[in-house]
Computed example of a mutant assay.
Amino acid sequence: MVDHIHTPNDGRGSRDVFVNGNRIDNVSWADVRAGVVWFAPEPIRATRREDVYCRRLRGHVEVVFHE
């Protein structure tokens, strides 16, 4: 298991993801080492191919686990 990559289904529990100190919701995956977060902005919408529209953010990524 790669400890610097976080996904919703990786089995490590619930957590919050922050980019440059701002909490980001609907995160598909986050790479702490590379400083990249892939997320679906609100409101959730579809692309022409009926995929979920996602965006990438770059910056200082922090992951905080819930207790």
Score class of each variant (00 low, 15 high):
R23W: 06
E62C: 01
I24G: 03
A30R: 01
G59Y: 06
G11F: 07
V63E: 02
I44F: 12
V32F: 08
H4P: 05
V61A: 01
G21F: 15
T47H: 06
R12F: 11
T47V: 00
P8Q: 08
P43C: 12
I44R: 11
G13Q: 10
G35S: 10
V32L: 07
I24Y: 02
H60K: 13
R56Q: 14
I24F: 02
D25M: 12
F65S: 08
V27A: 00
F39G: 02
P8R: 05
D25C: 01
R55Y: 05
R55W: 01
Y53P: 01
F39N: 02
H60N: 14
D51K: 06
G21E: 15
A34N: 12
Y53H: 05
R48K: 10
P43Y: 15
R23P: 07
A40C: 11
V27G: 01
G59K: 10
I5E: 06
E67M: 11
F65L: 00
V63Q: 12
V32K: 09
R49N: 05
P43T: 14
C54N: 02
W29N: 03
G13A: 13
F39C: 02
H60Y: 13
T7E: 07
P8N: 09
E62V: 13
P8Y: 11
D31I: 12
W38M: 02
R48C: 04
G35V: 08
R48F: 03
G21S: 15
I5Y: 02
R49Y: 05
V27F: 00
R23Y: 05
G35K: 09
W29M: 07
R58E: 15
P41H: 09
R23F: 01
L57H: 04
N9E: 13
V27N: 00
Y53A: 13
V2E: 14
V32R: 12
A46Q: 02
G35Q: 11
F65D: 13
H60F: 14
V36C: 12
N20K: 13
E62Y: 00
P8A: 12
V17Q: 04
V32S: 07
A40Q: 10
D51N: 06
I5G: 03
V17R: 04
D16Q: 13
D31F: 07
P8T: 08
